[in-house]
Structure formats: structure tokens, C-alpha cells
Write a protein that binds this DNA or RNA. Structure first.
Lengths: 210, 210
DNA sequence: GTCTATATAGGGATAGAC
DNA sequence: GTCTATCCCTATATAGAC
């Protein structure tokens, strides 16, 4: 339950959602993901990435035009996979606000627990990008936030939810997932499906669902 | 409610808890805090800090033996102030678990909202330190975590709390505060005292307090 | 698409004068 | 305690051969 110093999430293999095609380009993304999550974007050099892949630094430039573009792609892929997971969850959740919250929270939690490095890089290193490169991901983020706030708003309107404050409660619900990479260990005693259910339950408690 | 790219928390003045004496050393810490929060530790150079202070880079070395030692002091000061705030809150909270949770959560929230840059640097940049330099702060962190988990455990023992899972609920409660710097704006419509009460209420809901 | 070699810039930190 | 000057290293990125 404590983040380790200097070696933040140096985990096993850095998993990338399946949408990225195989090949050297993917290998670069995976290795960069691992290193960015562990040492941060500015703490990782092109040489570090190249060395791990047993390539010369210049070889990376055949696949990405700059170090920033590698980060930008990771950030974009992460936001896309996250939003797709939320939308898929909503599609199967019916129309009850409580069921929709449960589905959104479960998907949010599973995403952050299954791809902890990607979650960390997306959330902490996006700031290292110039606005042009981060804008598409920021737009996706706004949409994803809206998915939850909209469900909360509808639940309140229907008299099903009674949170002490809609925005603050929404932020608290999101925060449970966002902080997961800093303490949750998938190989530990608490399995992911159980954790996802716990988070859904906590969200509904915060909302005063009835 | 969205973190801005490239300029993470470039806020006004970076506030440091009052325990640090005035003088050039403090000015260095404050400016480094602002820059580390905005650009990250690795994204900030000694030259950046010196330029903002209208000093030559070499002048900083009369006050700190390395760039890492500047970060280490910020991290230590942040952890000390946080823990002291939690302990002070507990001292005035009586013996009821619910009142103790309320006091801890309120203090945690106020600390993160009042010192957002320090919170971000403490949580995100501690990983940039070698273990020798981060160890004292990590020890404090473990103690602070224990303050909350201990209160939760007692509340459960006494039959006052019924969380779905003690550790996960404790993490969810902490996460509300930890994520504050990324969305809360002190100058906005939601004042800090109200927010602290909201977080306390959410914590007690999660715990099923009765 | 990968290599060798290198251009060009900026990094942390120190020496020694005042 | 701050300055000027500088050492030495590493960074990103490019040129051109294969």
C-alpha cells in the first residue's frame, strides 16, 4: 500500500490495450510505457528506450518523429481504450441509474487495475506534452467525465441519488480508480472482480442510492 | 475539472507550511516547489530555478548540496506538515470512531486543498529520489496511513462501521484528498470548509457509519 | 529500417575570486 | 553567499551509408 521510491511501477511487462498492431513500433510503445511509468517522461531518455530494445537511438526515429510523439500516442491510446470500456459498459447496463453507475465504476476500476502503467502515464505525464499533442486526449477525457456526471445528474433528478454534492461526489468516485495503480496489487489477496464490486458499492453508498 | 497540459498547477505563489525559516533557502524551496509542481522534477533544471530567483546557478549550491536535496526537503516538509495536521485533528476529536474519521478526513482535505503544489510534488516526484533520501518521508507516510486504518479497524470492531472492505475503503477515502489538486479550485464556488465537510460525509457513507 | 557518426544544445556541479 | 567561468556529461535529433 505504499508507492515505492525511484521505481514507480517497474512492473513485469507493460500491457497495452490490444488495438496497437504488432511490430517494432509496438515494441517501442511498450518499452517506453514501462520506462515512462517507472521514471517519468523527462526522467527517461531515448537512449534508455533504445538500449532496452537493443536498438540504436536513431532507429527509433524511423517510427516516431520525436520522443514527445511516443508519449502522445500512449496518452491517446490510453484515453481511447478507457472511453471505449466506459461506453461498452454503459451499453449493457440498462436504464437504471444505479446499474449504470455500477457498470461505469466497474469498467473504470478494471481499466486502471489491468493497465496500471498506462493509467499512470496518461494521468501524470500528459502535462509534458505541448497542447497540440495533448488536445485530442483532453477532449476524450472531458467526454468520459461527462458520462459519469450525466448519469449522476439523472439519478438525482429521478430522486434515486442524494449525494452531498454532485461534482465532488463524482470526483470522489473517479478518484477511487485513478489512485488504484499506487496501491493495488493484482497478484494479492484481493481479486480484480471483487475489487470492482467493492468500488461500485462504495460509489452507490456515496450517492445515497436507494 | 480538467488538469491542464504542460502547465500543471502553475499557480500563483507556491505555499509552504510555515515551519520553514525565511531567507534565501526558503525562497529556493518555494520557487523549486512551484517549478517541480508545474514541470516535474526532471523537467526542471537548476538553471530554471536560479533564473526565477535572479541568482546564478552556482549560488544555489551554498544552500543545497544537490538538486535532489531540494526535492528531498520539500518531500520531507510536506509529509511532516501533513502528519502533524492529522495528529492535531485527532487530538481534538474525542473517542468516537465517526468523529475521528470526520476529523482525519477534514484535515487531509484541507491540507491537500491549501497546499496543492506541495501535495503533487510529494506524491508524484518522491519517486525521483534515491531511497536514502526518501526513506524518512516514506516512514512518515506509513504512520499517517496507519492513523486512518487504525480508526477504521476500531470502528468495525465496535460495530459502528461496516465497510465492504477495510483496506479498499481506506484507500478510497484517502484518494478523495489526494486527487484534489487536480480539480479543486479554491477561488471557485465551493469553499474549502464545505468541501471538507462533504468529504467527511462521503467517508462516513462509505464506512456505513451508524 | 537499422547502422555509425555527429551536430548542437543543455544538464548538474565545481573552482576560485570577491 | 554570490559571482564568473568552466568541466564534463548526457540529451534530442539528424546525415548518410548499407
Amino acid at each position: 500500500m505504499r508507492p515505492l521510491p525511484r521505481s514507480r511501477l517497474q512492473a513485469q511487462k507493460a500491457t497495452l490495450p490490444g488495438t496497437v498492431p504488432e511490430g517494432t513500433r509496438r515494441r517501442i510503445l511498450e518499452e517506453a510505457l514501462r520506462l515512462f511509468a517507472s521514471q517519468g517522461f523527462h526522467g527517461t531518455s531515448i537512449r534508455d528506450v533504445a538500449k532496452k530494445l537493443e536498438l540504436q537511438p536513431s532507429a527509433l526515429y524511423a517510427h516516431f518523429s520525436s520522443k514527445e510523439h511516443i508519449l502522445a500516442e500512449l496518452v491517446q491510446v490510453g484515453h481511447e481504450a478507457h472511453q471505449e470500456a466506459l461506453r461498452a459498459a454503459l451499453r449493457d447496463a440498462g436504464t437504471e441509474p444505479a446499474a449504470q453507475v455500477r457498470a461505469l465504476v466497474r469498467a473504470h476500476t478494471v481499466m486502471h487495475a489491468a493497465h496500471p502503467q498506462l493509467a499512470v502515464v496518461v494521468n501524470e505525464e500528459i502535462h509534458a506534452l505541448p497542447p497540440e499533442l495533448s488536445a485530442p486526449a483532453m477532449a476524450l477525457r472531458d467526454q468520459s467525465v461527462a458520462l459519469l456526471t450525466e448519469v449522476i445528474r439523472r439519478g438525482v433528478e429521478q430522486g434515486r441519488f442524494s449525494p452531498p454534492h454532485e461534482a465532488a461526489t463524482g470526483a470522489a468516485i473517479s478518484a477511487m480508480g485513478t489512485r488504484l495503480p499506487y496501491w493495488y496489487e493484482p497478484s494479492g489477496a484481493l481479486d480484480l472482480d471483487t475489487l470492482a464490486n467493492i468500488h461500485a458499492e462504495l460509489a452507490l453508498r456515496m450517492l445515497g442510492a436507494r
